[in-house]
C-alpha cells in the first residue's frame, strides 16, 4: 500500500507544497491500560507547516513522539518518504533527517551556545576518534564545514551575541532559540517543534513565529509543531490536526478547523447531559 498521492501546489505566498512526506496510518498507542492515541491517521506534506493542537492531555506530545520514532505504536504504520518505517532507535531516526526541539528545553547547560549547536552536526561527522584526536585531514575538514553551517544558522537566528555564552546563563526565550538552532544545523527534512512558544511573552512569540516562517521559507523545511497559542497556530500553519482524548476530531486548513463544531466544543467545553 503506498502513501496518499497529492498534486504539488503553490501557496498564496509563493511556497511549494509537495507530495506526502510522512503518513501515519491508524496509529494506536497504549501505556498499560491508558490509551494515549486512538486510531489516528494523519499525513504531513513536503514543505508545509503542520500543527497538532488540542487541550491538555489530548495526546499531542505522544503523537509527536511517535512521529519522531521515540514511541512505538502498538497498532498502525508510519510511512516516511514513500516507505514504511520499521521500529527504530532515535539516532537512526535522526539519520533519516528528522530533528526536534523539546517542550522542556533539553540543552547542555554547561556548554556554550556554539558547542550546543555543533552537537546537532553529529550525524554529519564520520571521522574516526583517532583522526579527531590528532586533528588532521578529514577531521579538520569536517569540523570546518560543520562550523560553517553552525555559523550560518547563528546568523539566521540572530544569536551572534551569545555565541560563546554558556547556555545555563541564558534566559528562557533564548534557550528556545538555541534549541531550534541545534535542530536546524542537522539540516532536517522534517523538523518537529514541541511547544516552541510555551512560556514566552508576546514579543518573543512574534520573533519565534518569524523564525519558524523564515526556516520554512528559506530552507524549505517541512515543520510539524505542537502549540497551545491558538492565534499563533492559525497564523502559522497550512493545515491543523485537532486531537481530544487521544482521538482526532478535526483536520484541515485553519479556517476549516476554526469552524468545526467538535473542535469548538472540545475547546470551550460542552454540557454533558
Amino acid at each position: 500500500m503506498s502513501m496518499i498521492q497529492y498534486q504539488p501546489y503553490q501557496t498564496e505566498d509563493g511556497r511549494t507544497i509537495g507530495n506526502t512526506l510522512m503518513e501515519m496510518k491508524n496509529i494506536t498507542l497504549r501505556f498499560g491500560g491508558v490509551v494515549a492515541i486512538k486510531d489516528i491517521s494523519l499525513d504531513i506534506r513536503e514543505g508545509e507547516i503542520r500543527a497538532i493542537i488540542g487541550p491538555n492531555g489530548a495526546g499531542k506530545s505522544s503523537m509527536l513522539n511517535v512521529i519522531s520514532g521515540f514511541y512505538h505504536p502498538q497498532d498502525g504504520e508510519v510511512w516516511y518518504k514513500g516507505e514504511p518505517r520499521p521500529q527504530m532507535r532515535p539516532y537512526q531516526v535522526a539519520r533519516l533527517g528528522i530533528a526536534r526541539t523539546f517542550q522542556n528545553i533539553a540543552l547542555f547547560e554547561g556548554m556554550s551556545v556554539l558547542d550546543n549547536i555543533m552537537t546537532g552536526r553529529l550525524n554529519h561527522m564520520s571521522a574516526s576518534i583517532l583522526d579527531q584526536m590528532i586533528w588532521w585531514g578529514k577531521a579538520e575538514r569536517e569540523e570546518v564545514a560543520n562550523r560553517e553551517r553552525a555559523e550560518e544558522i547563528i546568523d539566521f537566528l540572530e544569536i551572534q551575541a551569545i555565541r560563546k555564552t554558556p547556555v545555563g546563563r541564558l534566559p528562557y526565550g533564548l534557550k528556545k532559540r538555541v534549541e531550534l538552532a541545534r535542530a536546524l544545523v542537522a539540516e532536517p527534512s522534517l523538523l518537529l517543534l514541541d511547544e516552541p512558544m510555551a512560556g514566552m511573552n508576546v514579543e518573543e512569540k512574534e520573533d519565534m513565529s518569524r523564525f519558524i516562517l523564515d526556516v520554512n521559507d528559506e530552507f524549505g523545511t517541512t515543520i510539524a509543531l505542537i502549540e497551545h497559542d491558538m492565534g499563533v497556530v492559525m497564523d502559522l500553519s497550512d493545515r491543523v490536526v485537532v486531537m481530544d482524548y487521544g482521538k482526532k476530531i478535526g483536520d484541515g486548513t485553519p479556517d476549516e478547523v476554526r469552524n468545526n463544531q467538535e473542535v469548538i466544543d472540545a475547546y470551550l467545553g460542552v454540557a454533558h447531559d
Binding site: 562550523r147 560553517e148 555559523e151 550560518e152 546568523d155 551572534q160
Partner: peptide, 9 residues
C-alpha cells in the same frame, strides 16, 4: 580598508 565580522569571522 574594511573589516566586517560575519559568520563569526
Amino acid at each position: 580598508a574594511y573589516r566586517e565580522k560575519e559568520f563569526g569571522i
